[in-house]
Design a binder for these strands. Structure first.
Lengths: 168, 168
DNA sequence: AAGATATGTCAACATGACTGTCCCAAATCG
DNA sequence: CGATTTGGGACAGTCATGTTGACATATCTT
């Protein structure tokens, strides 16, 4: 089915060859690692790692996030998150408040210092992402999103979607 | 960058809002982690981890790959790769041959057992990727690829492209 | 009052990165 | 030819970040 080698179509809709799957796997791997590696030097300067970055990111995205929600987003154990969160609080980047509706909850938000670091980290990711968006064009962006959504198990999609929703 | 906030053009493809950038970051994170997590149970059954999976993957993709090329693909230190490679060789999944053009090189390939495990791992990734491709449609796939390529530093793109090239 | 839930904490351990150092064999350069 | 560089390997120690398991406390729900 490799018939016309001269006029290779980008991707055939029905006959998905192994090479097309492998290309997706590889680009996803290299694209993801390129993105996260971009922030490493900023993190190293602050004495933090990628785990701290992920926590900062989601707290910045959803201020007032409860610990349990962050746990579900990161899909790690509470012991792992506990260490990260303790460090961020000890260094004054994150603060907690007791939940209003449910007083067992600890609602997380960034301090001014935390927001400053997160902004620097975000600016770094933004540079790369904006360049990629600009290079690829508007139509490509929606395609990029829709394939990625398709990779996420349907059970997890509401959680991911909730990040983009207007704050309640 | 946020200078023209007052006179925002209505639907300009160049006006990239923070939410669009954050959506890309998040979907890339969740899409990538969803993909790799799918193979974890197979790996655990074999007593390997994600580092072994990455090595197996690239050796399967480019049989006869030299150690140095694998090192550049994975972007880790040779000490880290050394341990992984030693384990894969000790368990009979990978074998080495002395380079023909350059006898210092060690060319890597999978044994039959290695190819079997890699096939099982690939089948797992393929299931998810094929479903996402199918859900999203052909146009989306090329958009997906082109944004991801844009995220990869230009200096690294030839290396990534080389994976898809016909074997020399 | 009893049970479930949200969070925190202690301890031990596994994985997979890192740095630094040293070594050997083969290729390449002068 | 000798000197240097390159490809690969090895030893030792460390760090970041994940895991299990057990247990405690406060609060909400029934």
């Amino acid at each position: 089915m490799r018939a016309a080698a001269s006029l290779t179509p980008p991707a055939s809709p029905l006959y998905l060859r192994e090479d097309e799957i492998r290309r997706g796997i590889e680009l996803l791997y290299f694209g993801y690692t390129s993105m996260v590696r971009g922030a490493d030097s900023i993190l190293a300067d602050s004495g933090f790692g990628r785990a701290h970055h992920r926590a900062l990111y989601f707290i910045a995205r959803r201020p007032g996030l409860a610990v349990g929600e962050l746990l579900r987003l990161l899909a790690i154990t509470k012991q792992s998150l506990g260490r990260v969160l303790t460090e961020l609080q000890d260094k004054g980047l994150v603060e907690q408040a007791i939940g209003t509706a449910d007083r067992r909850q600890r609602l997380l938000r960034l301090t001014a210092a935390g927001a400053g670091l997160e902004a620097a980290l975000f600016a770094e990711l933004e540079t790369g992402m904006a360049a990629a968006y600009g290079e690829a064009g508007q139509a490509a962006i929606t395609g990029f999103w829709s394939v990625l959504i398709g990779l996420i198990p349907t059970a997890d999609r509401p959680l991911v979607d909730s990040l983009g929703q207007r704050q309640g």
